[in-house]
Nucleic acid binder design. Structure first.
Lengths: 224, 224
DNA sequence: AGCTCATGTTAATGGCTTTTACATTAGCCA
DNA sequence: TGGCTAATGTAAAAGCCATTAACATGAGCT
């Protein structure tokens, strides 16, 4: 293998001798940013430190990102793409049944917020205007589309007469997932001691909600 | 009236002649911070600019706040206090009935996020560790206590046999409110075009949820 | 009047962001 | 192979910010 330059992002991490050109600086900066955001939050992250981490001068990043905000936006973009993958895998087209798949979906949402706090905060808390780039908005929409697809399948299983609006159901599930993730789903920030895990809280909430829609759940016998 | 100094916060806004001492700098800084956060987000806000806005030197704020973060935390603290007042007023002890009051509560939550985005982002998105100060956590807890009280009254109206855990209900309602406010509730940031207002979305979600709990709502006749 | 402490100011250090002018070299074409 | 050009880095500089230390002012009390 040609170990030369564009290795797909390996680079030299920290300190390896390299020529005048880095070879994969853009990738390295995205990674550095992610690492730094994870450590110190989106606010604490600095362009200069990312450059240092990648072993280049403070001006080098400007060859790849218009400014600090654009780098942040790119992190968010990548986050949404990853998020979509994760959610899609969890949903798995609703197998074996919509309810079980939805449960996985919720857990995946929370797990993403917990294990990828850097992405999550870049995506939802860094205050990046979604209008920044069409791609960003699109990526966000694609991630949401997974939830929407889930709502669709769920609604399809209900009798047409009492079938609720799909979009509304998707928005509700998204909102409660996001609310729980934001308020209780991360390491120790904003931690309030809960009597249950975020996962249990979300699962219970969604079950109650579905029951409210008239969706018959297995655990709940109709006549108590 | 003694127009002299400590006027309760009036100060000179911008440019008025004043002596060596400001007279109410702490208050002026808190206001300036709020204004700046509203304009440019919690990240864009700078200590120096707040000082400028208050008409003092860049070092003066350090007499009142340990550093920039402490000022931010104080803004958040004040935000939680205000939030509690707003929520309490909306809840109004559950009058005339728990359901109507809960509806007002939800709307108040969203209205706060919309009309006080500076407070809201300082409280929930600025990444201030709640452990920063006991007061901050306490203020947050007090605000949540209003929701908890609402859940309590709601649960109390249900037959004891099928009465759900109060805390869980409060957490669910808080989560969906927070999720909707964060995702759809602000000016134009993160705006996705919805087929309904955030208020309608929240109201519908809560109604479905309550129905799922077995709470009989007026709009929904038992036999459709 | 005089003391003292809270509150402001000035000046200085060090970091970050961003721009401009210049350096290096990778990729390509003859 | 040799040379051109655009992409990618570097160096240096301007301007802003956070934070601190040394010094100034005056408010409130005795």
């Amino acid at each position: 293998m040609s170990w030369s330059k564009r290795g797909g992002g390996e680079g030299e991490e920290a300190g390896g001798a390299r020529g005048y050109h880095h070879g994969n600086l853009k990738e390295a900066l995205l990674r550095a940013a992610l690492e730094l955001i994870a450590q110190k939050g989106p606010a604490g992250f600095t362009f200069a430190e990312a450059a240092r981490w990648a072993g280049v001068s403070p001006a080098a990043p400007y060859r790849h990102f218009r400014d600090r905000d654009e780098l942040l936006a790119n992190v968010a973009l990548r986050g949404f793409e990853r998020f979509e993958v994760v959610l899609k895998r969890a949903w798995d087209d609703g197998r074996p049944d919509a309810l079980a798949a939805l449960d996985r979906l919720g857990k995946a949402y929370l797990e993403f917020a917990r294990t990828e706090p850097a992405y999550y905060s870049a995506m939802f808390e860094a205050g990046i205007p979604l209008a920044t780039s069409p791609e960003l908005r699109e990526a966000g929409d694609h991630a949401f589309a997974v939830l929407r697809g889930a709502a669709e399948k769920l609604c399809a299983e209900m009798p047409p007469t009492k079938r609720p609006p799909t979009l509304m159901v998707a928005l509700h599930i998204w909102s409660i997932s996001h609310g729980i993730a934001s308020l209780f789903g991360r390491g120790d920030a904003a931690r309030r001691t809960l009597p249950m895990s975020a996962e249990e809280l979300l699962e219970a909430g969604v079950l109650v909600y579905l029951r409210g829609l008239g969706f018959a759940t297995a655990t709940e016998k109709p006549a108590g």
